[in-house]
Design a protein around this nucleic acid. Structure first.
Lengths: 343, 343
DNA sequence: TTGTAAGCGTTATCAC
DNA sequence: GTGATAACGCTTACAA
């Protein structure tokens, strides 16, 4: 525990195998080498428990096999799951993952980027919200859910289609007075397209709708006030609500319950994200547009690690799907079941 | 994007500042140096946008300011939150975090440890389940929730007290026929003490109880069968259940609901973990013993990074607390509210 | 106090 | 193919 006994080096392996240092290096870099030599080296390395030192390699070759993931936090199932899948995808490609957490603090985001650059990682996958993020073009960077500049690939789910999908679904389920509710960061990102998709569908299909946007910083008060105005005292001004996130949907449902409005009998609700309870095998909290988190993770890693990083598309939208989760008048799909709020 | 233009080195800074290389190094290592020199160096470094190269530093000094966190996954709020807090605690102490995910696979766990050692991190925080984990004593290692050997500090919550607490609480709430239900890994860990604490309390207080343990690998079938035997056809053999995890509590509640047993009217349930919906500010799923995740994270980091790592206590149990969350006959605490299962 | 120089473990470039 | 040898950027004795 106290001392780390120094591990064997290539030199040791070379001596043990009776070959030259360079030969050992080649073996560990997949560079062709005489079969008998290779075997000798591998045997010796095994015997000594040798592992290449990534720091020496990083120093010399500036190839570290490590990428950094920058997230606001992992204290949210969406982020946590993303981290999980990205870590997996990286491991499969023999890369390690450094995790940096920003807490939504622009300063911390800047610090993270600094820290990460200092660590000479091979690339960065970042999900950040700060308005004036400095991403210099000189390090492979893939952004998630936020378009930064044409030179930086952005991976996100197809938020626009998701919005349309929600509108269409509510309409098909019989809703005729639709409401779009959004809370979120004041920084614009791909998620804004959820509302755009919803509104576009409504307009094209001449559906009666209203769209309300609230800022995260104001808390839930404005939302609740709005709901009280439209659902208080027996009123039910809308019969279908699309919320920009599952969390919002859940809160709206709770507020509606306290106003005596029944879900899904009086109002049907669709959220966005596909968050589940406990873990990704849990139950949905509401009917929702499910983001393809795993695909997003794998795509981000693929784009980041692809050779021809230069001609990667600037924006990659991955398909979303709808899943019934108890807040719409239809059976829950695939064993999905949802929760009900205590009144 | 394509080329990483090479960043300035200490040599550049030295030249720019007109001082020797060693002086620059000292400045960046907090080693006392003439004030005027220090300022010149800092100015020069600033001008050049210099950052020390951690790989070179790691190679030379075998001090990398990086620790690895090994988790089964982050696809569970408990793990995700732990990762979140640990990352924070490390950042505060100017360390980076590498995350390695094992998927509960013993082989992957071994690979992780290898990988992590190869990366020459300063230490490891590990939450692992594999039975025959090889942790060599030559690298600082802190285990979470699992005692490995006296030489390796283990941080966990006070599972035993948590178990007693649950028993006592159920008793105070009027339950007289108690049941302990456990699912989990076949590998023994600190969490096993939850049951021990529960049973001990019951025995000492002459409370009538039953304890059932199931293996994760068998799925939920045996649990449901057991419940059906004791709660089916109008029977209510127990009026208070302590489940080894919130997830289990949630599932039990669902099964009971399907059997027509009301919670908390007919049976009161207490879980363990303190998992909340969506994120750590969400609502509890059940009345529960809350693990002090943040404290666990900070303690693990402190122990790992403390100088006198040698005489660290072998086992550190952090205090848990009880929180009412709707599955017991009492008001929910601190704005907690819980969920109710659809029948 | 400051400057100098010897590595840390690899990789890459050469002659052989 | 193989085997010396020079970097890579930094820390750390040690000499000035």
């Amino acid at each position: 525990m106290t001392q780390r006994e120094k591990s064997p080096t290539m030199k040791d392996v070379a001596r043990e195998a009776g070959v030259a240092l360079g030969t050992v290096s080649k073996v560990f870099n997949g560079i062709p080498v005489g079969k008998s030599y290779r075997e000798r080296v591998e045997a010796a390395a095994d015997r000594l428990g040798y592992r290449v030192n990534n720091y020496a390699r990083g120093l010399r070759a500036s190839k570290t096999n490590c990428v950094a993931l920058i997230l606001p936090s992992t204290d949210h199932m969406f982020f946590a799951l993303l981290a999980d899948y990205i870590c997996d995808a990286l491991t499969k490609r023999d890369h390690r993952m450094m995790l940096a957490i920003t807490r939504d603090d622009p300063q911390a985001e800047a610090r993270c980027i600094q820290m990460v650059r200092q660590n000479k990682v091979d690339g960065i996958i970042g999900l950040t919200y700060s308005a004036d993020l400095e991403v210099r073009d000189d390090m492979p960077y893939v952004s998630i859910d936020r378009f930064i500049s044409p030179g930086i690939p952005c991976v996100s789910s197809d938020n626009f289609s998701g919005g349309s999908m929600a509108a269409e679904r509510l309409y098909q389920l019989g809703c005729r007075r639709l409401l779009f509710l959004r809370t979120g960061s004041h920084v614009s990102g791909e998620a804004d397209k959820r509302g755009a998709g919803f509104i576009t569908w409504c307009q094209q299909n001449h559906a009666d709708f209203e769209a309300m946007r609230f800022d995260d910083r104001d808390g839930l008060e404005p939302v609740n006030r709005y709901l009280a105005e439209h659902f208080g005292q027996g009123r039910v001004d809308f019969d279908g609500i699309f919320c920009s996130t599952d969390l919002l949907a859940y809160r709206v449902r709770k507020t509606l319950a306290s106003l005596g409005v029944r879900v899904p009998e009086d109002v049907q609700i669709i959220g966005f994200d596909g968050i589940r309870s406990f873990n990704s095998e849990g139950e949905l909290f509401c009917s929702t547009i499910v983001q393809p988190v795993k695909q997003m993770a794998e795509t981000a890693v693929n784009v980041l690690l692809s050779e021809d990083h230069s001609n990667a598309p600037a924006l990659i939208c991955l398909p979303v799907r709808y899943a019934a989760g108890g807040t719409t008048r239809e059976p829950c799909g695939e064993g999905e079941q949802s929760w009900q709020v205590n009144t």
